[in-house]
């Protein structure tokens, strides 16, 4: 992996999320629940040329190794993303995101009448269906612009 390709300096330990669909880097951080308050070193690159995607984003999170289940929810907005776990400047593990069966607590249901939008102690849950996601409570299907439904708190 060349320096030119990444355009930001290498990290010593942590996670590099590469091949994120162009423009989705901030949503990636939002889904991962990273907003800066954790005091992790975070660097992002947006809309750099990519042979595979046309344009891609790259997200680097220092000193935190993301688990497979944490990154799998990224498949909703960045299905081509690759995950590199870095230890002492070396890539020790490289995986693809895999589509999970359900996504919990990440998206909010667009149906105002859904019980998950009431004042109840319940997390949202969506199952993955043919070309979108479906609320496990009210059945509402979201097909387009999933990123608009990310519940950023």
């Amino acid at each position: 992996m060349s320096d030119r390709k990444l355009r930001v300096s290498k990290i010593r330990n942590g996670t590099v999320i590469d091949h994120v669909s162009g423009g989705q880097a901030l949503n990636v951080l939002s889904i991962l629940g990273i907003d800066g308050s954790e005091e992790l070193g975070v660097s992002i690159v947006m809309n750099v040329p990519s042979a595979q995607l046309g344009k891609k984003d790259v997200v680097k999170v220092e000193d935190r190794e993301l688990s497979q289940s944490e990154v799998d929810v990224l498949s909703l907005i960045a299905p081509e993303a690759t995950i590199n776990i870095i230890r002492d400047y070396d890539v020790t593990r490289k995986t693809r995101v895999e589509q999970p069966e359900t996504v919990t607590g990440i998206l909010s249901c667009p149906n105002p009448g859904c019980i998950t939008n009431g004042n109840e102690p319940v997390e949202t849950s969506f199952s993955i269906v043919a070309d979108g996601v479906r609320c496990s409570y009210c059945g509402t299907i979201i097909r387009d612009s999933l990123a608009d439904h990310i519940d950023a708190e």
């Binding site: 019980i115 009431g118 496990s136």
Partner: peptide, 30 residues
């Protein structure tokens, strides 16, 4: 202002089954 979740947890103590009608979609699942 009691939540539905609390209401059914209390009522569970009195009953062998619960029939629920509620205005929110997904309420019975929850």
């Amino acid at each position: 202002g009691e939540s539905l979740a609390d209401t059914v947890r209390v009522i569970e103590g009195y009953a062998d089954a619960i029939v629920l009608r509620h205005p929110s979609e997904g309420s019975a699942q929850m």
